[in-house]
């Protein structure tokens, strides 16, 4: 028996003004799995992320999370169900401090409303203290505790990517989508990122990542999905994918195939 599927995509498709950006894509992410999504630029990887997280609504197909359809839900509800993400182009709250960024991640798991906040009710102050404590823990988890009170915009790119991961983890996700987490990182940072991804899995959070760094992808991923021109080209463990003729063709160009 397969382990239960956490996320299931069934024939998902979307087109923008006649251009079919994603075509009949189906795959699953199992609980506790690290899955990678690879493909040349413009293959539809980020579009697929946007479809899963509710930034876009698919024209066709179904997206199931915990066996419930989530396509068409607004992003904040999908986040509430337990899917969180980072962005290819870092989207931090630049005018806020590092720890405040992570604290926004706790928003969906806490409940102090306007009135409680305005009146500083005791329970809301306790909740606020807990938010801060948990956020500092997540910062420590990614190794950024020393920068907690710096402005997010002032961090170097490598740290910004880590901060996005901490912020996403603070929402208590069951599935974390990482959009090119290694882009712009140096060798040692990439090495640390690898350890971090494994540590995330240790916390029983599944990971779906888009990554161009092949050595990182091959090392961390249990399974790889290859997209090309919005279509699913291949799916399987890293070793199979490395030898898959269609994948080699897509990556190295048709000329090589001849």
């Amino acid at each position: 028996m397969d382990p239960p599927a956490l996320l299931t995509l069934k024939d998902v498709g979307i087109s923008f003004g006649g251009l079919q950006a994603v075509k009949q894509v189906s795959f699953q992410v199992q609980e506790g799995q690290i899955k990678a999504l690879i493909g040349p630029n413009g293959a539809g990887k980020t579009t697929l992320f946007n479809l899963i997280t509710g930034m876009l609504t698919p024209d066709q197909g179904e997206i199931l999370f915990h066996r419930q359809a989530i396509q068409g839900l607004p992003p904040f509800q999908i986040a509430a169900r337990g899917i969180s993400r980072t962005f290819q182009i870092v989207q931090l709250f630049g005018h806020m401090t590092v720890v405040e960024n992570v604290m926004v991640g706790r928003h969906i798991r806490t409940r102090a409303g306007l009135l409680a906040a305005a009146l500083r009710l005791p329970w809301s102050r306790r909740e606020e203290a807990a938010i801060r404590a948990q956020s500092l823990e997540w910062l420590a988890f990614v190794g950024l505790q020393a920068r907690a009170d710096d402005y997010a915009a002032n961090l170097p790119l490598g740290h910004q990517r880590l901060l996005e991961i901490a912020r996403a983890l603070a929402t208590d996700p069951k599935l974390l989508l990482l959009d090119e987490p290694a882009a712009g990182l140096d060798m040692t940072e990439t090495e640390r990122l690898k350890d971090l991804i494994f540590a995330i899995r240790e916390k029983e959070i599944s990971v779906l990542l888009v990554e161009h760094d092949m050595s990182l992808t091959m090392e961390v991923a249990d399974e790889i999905v290859v997209l090309d021109h919005g279509e699913l080209l291949a799916e399987g463990p890293p070793r199979e994918i490395q030898r898959h003729p269609a994948v080699i063709a897509a990556y190295l160009g048709r000329d090589w195939e001849k």
Binding site: G54, F76, A79, F87, Q91, V104, H107, I108, A168
Partner: peptide
């Protein structure tokens, strides 16, 4: 965008 993705309505 990021606020939405973090679950802020």
């Amino acid at each position: 965008t990021a606020a939405l993705a973090m679950g802020v309505d």
